[in-house]
Design a protein around this nucleic acid. Structure first.
Lengths: 218, 218
DNA sequence: AATGAAAAGTGTATTTTTGACAAAATCACT
DNA sequence: AGTGATTTTGTCAAAAATACACTTTTCATT
């Protein structure tokens, strides 16, 4: 029995809402094992960095993003989760809004990345399917915090959009009137006076977070 | 930069209620560093075991207990949390009832262990004070699950006892009538018909978990 | 201009949960 | 019998969660 080979990796489940759809970022594995499979962005932990620094490294060097909101989720330690080696994984949840993606996410040479609808995931390498599942569960819990959605919609948004997000993440239908009542009663957002002109029916009002709320986040 | 030295340890915050007091189990460190300090029971992770198996090992070989209820809490990775080496720690919360302790906890030669009142902790070695704090926070969250207290009081108990437990863990006063109402409405417990004959004033009724509930736990 | 389709918007009543609050009952002891 | 300590019990109000259906706004079609 030895204890010298416990490699450690961090993995990040980076979630966003793109065009109203709940999505997760995956990378294409370029070499064996699991060559060709899609996997979570990850990194082997170095001696001289914390888990948080390591995750930060993933987002910068493999995803091409600056700081994002992230939260540690769970540490996985099945013996055979990694072939031929013993590697533990610490999974993090990341949240980012889609406009930040457009503005700030850079291409990284040699890395093929893609956003997948959460309901249309490909077959994942390693034990990443289990890890994604766990992170979604934790995210469902995080969504109870009333102001968490600013991570996904920091700028203008409509209430129907927001509701669809909650419905996808929580994986259940919500009543429109009750949802609306709840969000508005939080007193965090205000009507911009503008409307969402896209789409078929009646345009939805655009809301934004109140200045006072955004300030108190910092 | 290398990644061969990331040792991993598990630590367990084992909580109980002894004589109505919220307590945690600590071990005396017998050698440097932190010789003489009290620390959390822990174990270096071996190549061929999962974190859960390792924690199980702690409870058996260092604490002298069979299986207990446990839940992963958080993974700590500060570079300098351990002197001279890089060691990550995965903290687990453990819960046990005091009668199981009396019946089942064995002395382990060479190990000095002691239950401490949570409000009277000694100076802890390493970063264990931070870890205890985090575990208590998580435990406070776990206490929202209505049936968690069976881990601390599986057998007969009185409602005032139970309330004191909640008050200590949540670290706030609760209204007696409202607490009582809430617990009874869970419909998990029943009056035994007996009373707690110890103490000064009016004896409290003894309650127990209903058979039907205990069965559905297995 | 009229019509229909699509989606957003809106209010009320009911139930459930939470919170505040004070008096009576039981026991031990003297 | 009286005192002290502790347990037990109920009601009312406020807040939060739930259920539920029709009207309004826009666009597209005729």
């Amino acid at each position: 029995m030895s204890y010298t080979n416990n490699l450690m990796e961090t993995l990040i489940c980076l979630f966003t809402i793109k065009n109203g759809i709940f999505q997760i970022l995956l990378l294409r594995k370029k070499s064996d094992p699991y060559k060709g499979y899609w996997i979570l962005p990850g990194n082997i932990l170095l001696d001289n960095e914390t888990l948080e620094q390591n995750v930060e490294g993933i987002t910068q060097t493999k995803i091409g993003l600056k700081t994002i909101y992230k939260k540690q989720c769970y540490t996985f330690s099945n013996i055979n989760r990694y072939p031929n080696k013993r590697v533990l994984a610490v999974a993090y949840i990341g949240l980012i809004d889609s406009s930040s993606i457009l503005l700030k996410m850079q291409e990284i040479p040699g890395i093929e990345k893609k956003w997948f609808n959460i309901n249309e995931l490909p077959k994942l390498g390693y034990d990443h399917e289990i890890i994604v599942k766990k992170c979604i569960e934790r995210l469902q819990y995080l969504m109870r915090e009333p102001d968490i959605f600013i991570k996904l919609f920091p700028s203008d948004f409509t209430l129907p959009e927001l509701q669809k997000v909650y419905e996808q993440i929580l994986n259940k239908k919500l009543d429109r009137r009750n949802f609306r009542k709840k969000i508005i009663n939080l007193n965090l957002i205000e009507d911009t006076g503008y409307k969402n002109e896209i789409g078929n029916g009646r345009p939805a009002k655009l809301y934004r977070f109140k200045e006072t709320f955004i300030k108190q986040l910092n």
